[in-house]
Computed example of a mutant assay.
Amino acid sequence: MSISTIGIDIGKSKFHVCALDERGHVKFRRAYSRSGLIQFLANTPPARVATEACAGAHFVGRKAQSFDHEARLLPGQYVKAYVKSQKNDFADAEAIAEASTRPTMRSVPVKPADRQALQLLHRQRSAWIGERTALANRIRAMLLEFGITIPKSLSQLRRQLPCVLEDAENELPDRLRELIVELWDDITRLDKRLKRLDSELETHAHADPQTQLLLSIPGIGPVIATALISGIGDASTFRKGRDLAAWMGLVPRQYSTGGQTRLLGIGKRGNAHLRMLLIHGARAVLRVASKRSEDDGLRRWVERVTARKHPNVAAVALANKMARIVHAVLRHNTPFKAQLMGA
């Protein structure tokens, strides 16, 4: 029988392959280098090629699709149940291949190269913000050793640090002043990098048709819109808006048994970065919702929720609503209209 399914356990330089026939029997197990794997896929008739959704998986998926294979990227937690006996690379490859044959198995859509590059830009943006925060905290900690306190805010640090460095009576050693100036120069360089990157994301947001649709949603700007487009990929892979909200971890977590349904806090699954951005966007909407017109559906929805819920709960609820709106906007390729917003 011909090869029907190919499971690939991805490594840095070695790729372990398990090939199954149409009945699910193992035909062979082999290890390839990166170039050898590409040559193997190019010389193999079209089949289902499955990998775990991990680093390098989208590259392998795009290569498989270029050779007319059906690429499937599976979440690692769903593959684990199919690993037989002890764990090794060939056992993992076989488990990936077997899991991909299940009709109910979920998969991750293969990202185009430009969308993946956009996602990496957002990851680097988050890393630079983290580095800037760490530098600011380090400066505050150094000053605290000499009895100088600055509130925990980057804007406060920008405002007060020049005065602290110029004050000759605060007993700061000269070498420490030089070190703090060097750290502040690092923060300034990070500010310039972040400003350039934000400008690049804004240009991309106004040039991409799908991102322009997301900009019509209140609380979503260029940064959030480009992050959603790069993270979600194809919105049609989600059956409905609730599935997208659940993927982001914005729906209640269930712990139900014996016919008794128990709903806990939000699931916090999926992409934590997207969830954080949507919640921040929701907070911005809550602050200005009262300024929208009275016949605005979004304003009416916010007023009903904030009247009975804590502001933090209302922000998460609105983020959940925004995730569903994002799905509807991308799925139907139409901009958001607040007047048509229901409960």
Rank of each mutant, 00 (worst) to 15 (best):
I3G: 06
F15A: 05
F15Y: 11
A19K: 12
E22R: 10
R23G: 06
G24S: 04
F28I: 04
R30G: 02
Y32E: 03
S33C: 06
L37H: 03
L37M: 10
I38S: 12
N43G: 09
N43L: 14
A47Y: 05
A50W: 07
T51V: 11
T51N: 07
A53I: 06
A55G: 15
A55M: 12
G56Y: 02
A57M: 07
F59W: 13
F67H: 12
H69C: 09
E70F: 02
A71F: 06
V83F: 08
K84Y: 03
K87N: 10
A95K: 12
A99R: 13
S100E: 04
S100T: 08
T104V: 05
R106P: 01
Q116T: 02
Q116H: 15
A117N: 14
A117Q: 13
L118N: 08
L118S: 12
R123N: 02
Q124K: 07
R125D: 00
S126A: 14
A127M: 10
G130K: 14
A134Q: 15
L135H: 11
L135F: 10
R140M: 08
L143R: 04
L154E: 09
S155R: 14
S155H: 12
Q156A: 15
L157M: 10
Q160K: 15
L161V: 02
L161Y: 05
L165W: 01
P173E: 02
P173L: 07
R177F: 01
L179H: 06
E182W: 00
L183A: 04
D185T: 00
D191Q: 08
K192E: 11
K192H: 08
E200Q: 12
L201S: 03
L201E: 01
L201A: 08
A207T: 02
Q210E: 14
L213E: 09
S216A: 08
A225C: 10
S230Q: 10
I232Y: 03
D234L: 08
F238I: 09
R239H: 12
K240A: 13
R242Q: 12
D243M: 14
D243Y: 13
D243S: 15
L244P: 11
L244G: 10
A245V: 03
A246H: 10
G249S: 07
V251A: 09
G258Q: 01
R262C: 09
G265C: 09
I266M: 11
N271A: 08
H273E: 13
M276D: 08
L286C: 06
V288G: 05
V288A: 12
V288M: 15
K291M: 11
S293V: 01
E294K: 14
E294F: 01
D295W: 02
V302I: 11
R304A: 09
A307L: 09
K309D: 00
A315C: 01
L318D: 02
A319G: 13
A323Q: 06
I325T: 04
A328L: 12
L330A: 06
R331A: 10
R331Y: 03
T334D: 03
